[in-house]
Amino acid sequence: MADYAKPLPEITAESKPFWDACARHELLVQKCRACGTVQYYPRGVCAACWSADVEWTPSAGRGRVYTFTVTYRTQARGFRDELPYVLAWIELEEGVQVMSNIVAVDPAKVAVGLPVRVTFDDVKEGLSIPKFTAA
């Protein structure tokens, strides 16, 4: 996995629980204890009410492609060597959108509404990046 040339996350205290869970192959979203809103991307406050009382909660890791693009030209590190690739917004069953890649699917078969499930790209010891593939 030492040859993973794509960008890596800069993990901070705020996001560490999310990335620790990814390393265990678990996708987390957040739920606000004050107002009940589920949110993604994770952050230190609830995006709906700004309560700091947000809890980590596992996502089933299933959803559908909300939209996507098959990229044929890019300067993005790592990706420019693997053209074409699929960048997508996925709508999870929990109701929130997640940006990711659709992998291990022929780009020509990707469509809006395609059922997908999370899969983890084990980049190095202790770091796995959530991506999605056909469910």
């Binding site: 901070t12 993604y40 993005a76 997640v98």
Partner: peptide, 13 residues
């Protein structure tokens, strides 16, 4: 910034 770890990893342009 903080948001990169949820977007830029995926080859955004």
């Amino acid at each position: 910034d903080y948001l990169d770890q949820f977007e830029a990893l995926y080859g955004t342009s």
